[in-house]
Design a protein around this nucleic acid. Structure first.
Lengths: 346, 346
DNA sequence: CTGAAAGCGCTAACAT
DNA sequence: ATGTTAGCGCTTTCAG
């Protein structure tokens, strides 16, 4: 970016003996410029290797054409699906993306938010960290009127639109499915119950139990982070329960996969002894054995919807102000790991 | 970004009755400004809710503080590890990231390159698409002196530094390991042999065979893309070979996992009938059964190294000019899927 | 140590 | 349909 003088609209203008205003207009395809001059301008721009200086343009226009994407973790299948969706829509609409990840850490999230604010993103798409306590760090955005869309892990009761799935329903469905399969004692392996996604799934689990006259038992709820270690520990915790549960609803496919592996090592038959339902529909789900029953959580669609809504708002096509939440479809995918009644494939 | 007037250095200056130059200097912690004025300036900046206008700053300084990250695919474990590494280093050094993905498509890659060039990235980190034919679209960068670092999928014989693993050695190691396990007929499931990563692994495979007096047989080389469908087809191709291979080196863990699943469905014992080695060390590897022997391809480290090298070059600490390639360590991880001689863990 | 002033490249209101 | 011009907010000589 340093070598060789950059061509500017001044260069094009003087080359063609016209004014910079005309060049500027032509370059943005303003219909007010005649076809002929436009053509000349485009040609010489091309010839002279002109490239727009977005810094000058943004400075002048007072907008950044940039969307911030701040998430708790980048190395996650789900988040990456979302990112792919966001990237697709944002690029299509001519927006850049600045990404920041908080490594599940509140302090870092605050720092990232500050940074994105200073970078003057036009809008923000974000999912909260594990231990995010409050939303104060988003206040500057609100004050400047920078729209924020939360997805997946969201905080209830704020003014920002939210893109989510119906976690309650999914939790209910998953548990209900296990009950339908004849499970009487269903463990629930999950994560930080302060986060909406997990509370809602938990409520679904509880209500499904209640509606089918199964007792809720606190000791069946196993909480951990989403690590492999936590998965193995959860499996051991399940093994320590007597009598042993005959079903488990695990709110993360990776953890479910680790659990299944560990349980099998202890000669527990899946689904025979314990039927298992995961969550997310990661690729691992149908590669492990038995194939994992799970909830399909369509990240890419979620990203597309979030980005599209944000972009439309920014462009003045429709507003986010009227929107409280957008709920994306998510469904149960039944595979072998939960099928007690019918024989699974193979 | 529109609501409420932004505070500028002018506001701070007039508030404090000093010049904007001093404010500007203080804000970047220029040692030439006295401690006292600096303190005052920081305080009122904070109080007035000042935020740097990077567009003005970049315009003035003629640099973007932005790094482009252009890859063939965003929904890939490997790429995401790399991205995580790049993001970490770039953020630490105060650079923004613009990401673009080409969906394995040459035309889109060309368009993305053009876009990033126009966005004036200070440097570019990229991995080529499946069918990228030439590097012409990178010429503008070269001409302007914008440094490019290629990783993973690279084109040989260009002037840009490259961050890779020793694919040849890894291919050799993987094959050698299978030979050590007693395999006599080893299939090779891989992808587009025009891409360095796959050619090099292929050469390693061939040479390992040759060195151990095993004949090379063209019909044992199975080429496909990296999809699930391709994985299943590859497995069927293997099954169609008579006599059946007793080993397979598959250059992608996901494809390997699909192959294993499919082979098992046809009652082929892994590793008993066919020993298998994958590539990448994705998480699936140790969740499937048997656990997958693979090559650990450390994406995050690769991203970190690439970004750090680029950043250092941009900051003038060390230059990329002297560097042709940086080779990251990658090693064989032996798990059950290839262990014919010893019994694997369960 | 501080200030004055020029100018980075562009947009848009206002002319013509 | 085209031109003139005033900034957008910052950095950086050059002067003091």
């Amino acid at each position: 970016m340093l070598k060789g003088k950059e061509t500017t609209i001044y260069d094009i203008a003087s080359q063609l003996n016209i004014s910079i205003a005309t060049v500027s207009r032509a370059l943005k395809d303003d219909p007010v410029v005649s076809k002929k001059t436009k053509k000349k301008i485009f040609e010489t721009a091309e010839k002279m290797g002109y490239r727009t200086n977005y810094y000058a343009s943004n400075l002048r226009k007072q907008q950044s054409n940039t969307i911030g994407f701040m998430v708790h973790e980048l190395q996650s299948n789900f988040i990456n699906s979302v990112l792919a969706g966001v990237e697709k829509e944002a690029t299509a609409a001519g927006y850049d993306l600045i990404i920041a990840h908080s490594q599940e850490n509140y302090e870092r999230e605050v720092a990232n938010a500050k940074n994105l604010f200073h970078k003057r993103v036009d809008g923000l798409i974000t999912s909260l960290s594990f231990d995010t306590k409050n939303l104060d760090h988003f206040r500057p955005f609100t004050e400047k009127g920078v729209p924020i869309i939360f997805f997946d892990r969201v905080e209830s009761g704020n003014d920002h639109p939210v893109v989510v799935i119906d976690n309650y329903k999914c939790g209910y469905q998953a548990t209900r499915h296990l009950i339908d399969q004849g499970c009487k004692k269903i463990a629930h392996v999950t994560s930080n119950l302060a986060r909406n996604v997990y509370t809602d799934r938990f409520r679904g689990y509880r209500d499904a139990l209640a509606e089918h006259d199964l007792p809720f038992d606190d000791s069946l709820v196993i909480i951990g982070d989403l690590s492999e270690k936590a998965g193995m520990e959860s499996a051991r915790r399940i093994l320590d329960i007597h009598p042993r549960p005959d079903g488990a609803f695990i709110t993360n496919d990776f953890v479910a996969a680790v659990c299944i592996r560990t349980l099998k090592q202890f000669d527990v038959a899946i689904p025979g002894d314990i039927a298992i339902v995961g969550f997310n529909n990661d690729a691992i789900g149908h590669l492990i054995e038995p194939a994992l029953t799970t909830i399909n959580y369509p990240g890419k669609e979620m990203g597309e919807v979030a980005a599209r809504s944000l972009v439309n708002h920014l462009k003045g096509i429709g507003s986010l102000r009227q929107i409280d939440r957008i709920v994306i479809n998510a469904d149960l995918i039944v595979r072998a790991s939960s099928l007690k009644k019918v024989d699974g494939p193979r």
